[in-house]
């Protein structure tokens, strides 16, 4: 499967990345190179091998269900670009209703 220009545009939109028109071809080439590497890996015999969901062969550590965090809102909001009435403010999102 080769990546075409329109795939690059679609992926860029999903990732919220802006890719200049003249870069698209170049990016497609790079992505296809990665896919080529994966193609090589695909040829390895993996029947009977458990899929690995994490490179560390360990299981998840767990945390007690106890509140350990205190209210640091004022400190966090000091570094926010905009905050008012306790809310973080971001450019208007048009509600899709």
């Amino acid at each position: 499967m080769a990546i075409e220009k329109k795939d690059v545009t679609a992926i860029a939109r999903l990732a919220a990345l802006s890719v200049e028109e003249e870069e698209i071809g170049q990016v497609a080439g790079k992505l296809n190179h990665i896919l080529d590497v994966l193609q090589t890996m695909q040829s390895v015999e993996t029947d009977g091998v458990e899929p690995m969901s994490h490179p560390l062969d360990q299981v998840q550590r767990l945390r007690e269900d106890t509140v350990t965090e205190t209210n640091q809102r004022d400190r966090y909001q000091r570094i926010a670009p905009a905050a008012e009435k306790g809310l973080y403010l971001v450019p208007q999102v048009i509600e899709q209703v």
Binding site: T66, T68, E69, R73, K85, L87, Y88
Partner: peptide, 27 residues
């Protein structure tokens, strides 16, 4: 029904002042 969030030690009590129960991970 837990006391804290699924991945952080912030409280999930309902009705708190905005962002007073949001730590760096939650942000």
């Amino acid at each position: 029904t837990t006391q804290t969030k699924i991945f952080s030690g912030s409280s999930i009590a309902y009705g708190a002042e905005p962002n007073t129960q949001a730590n760096l991970l939650d942000l």
